[in-house]
Amino acid sequence: MANAHKRRKQPEVVRRNLLDHAARIAAESGITAVTVQAVSAAAGVTKGGFTHHFPSKQALMDALFQELLNDIGTALAERVQVDPEPHGAFTRAYLNVVVNRDSDEKLNTWASLAVLMLNDPDLRKTWADWFLLRLDQYRETDIDLAIVRLATDGLWLSDISGVPLPDREQLCTRLVQLTLPRGR
């Protein structure tokens, strides 16, 4: 332990490591496998090191959920910014981000966090507040497109539950068409 005092402290690296390992464990084994012990061991830190960054598993899950919202928010903003058609840009971005995730690992992490959200009233409120803020931000261009966003959520639920959609690509194309102004 004498070396522990000589080791250079890197709190942001340790915090990031804990979050990454928690996400990986959630993706591979589900939320119930995300324990203080499992995440600490995977990240190579003591339980004390864990609690230095996150006072509880709930604090870790809250941070992981907030990080997911930040990632989604960034991806949405990038897509809205480059969309040449303002009408429906947010909804098209939402459809694109939700149904075209980068990897199965990210899908599994989203699925695990979604299940966590459904069981946690505070996270449900966090999601609702976050989403309502974006709907308010884009109300001039996207207010009448709730049906497309709800269908997008249904696609995502189908993906995470493993229910195949035979005409998934065609459905996505049709949903995009519904976001465009009439006559386009």
Rank of each mutant, 00 (worst) to 15 (best):
L118E: 13
L118H: 11
N119L: 14
D122K: 08
D122N: 06
L123S: 15
L123A: 14
L123T: 14
L123P: 02
L123Q: 14
R124L: 14
R124I: 10
R124D: 09
R124T: 12
R124S: 13
K125W: 01
K125N: 04
K125V: 03
T126D: 02
W127N: 11
W127K: 05
W127L: 14
A128L: 13
A128Y: 00
D129S: 07
D129T: 06
D129K: 01
D129L: 00
W130R: 02
W130F: 10
W130H: 01
F131L: 11
F131W: 09
L132D: 01
L132V: 00
L132E: 08
R134V: 00
L135Y: 02
L135G: 05
L135A: 08
D136A: 13
D136T: 05
Q137T: 13
Q137M: 11
Q137S: 09
Q137E: 15
Y138S: 13
Y138P: 09
E140N: 08
E140T: 12
E140S: 12
E140A: 12
T141G: 10
T141P: 10
T141I: 03
D142W: 05
D144K: 11
L145M: 01
L145D: 02
L145V: 02
L145I: 06
A146P: 00
A146G: 06
A146L: 13
A146T: 01
I147E: 06
I147L: 06
V148L: 05
V148A: 07
L150V: 13
A151Q: 10
T152D: 03
D153C: 12
G154S: 10
G154V: 04
L155R: 04
W156A: 15
L157Q: 08
L157K: 03
S158R: 09
S158C: 09
D159E: 06
I160D: 00
I160V: 15
S161V: 13
S161C: 11
S161P: 01
G162T: 01
G162R: 07
G162E: 01
V163A: 13
L165G: 03
L165I: 14
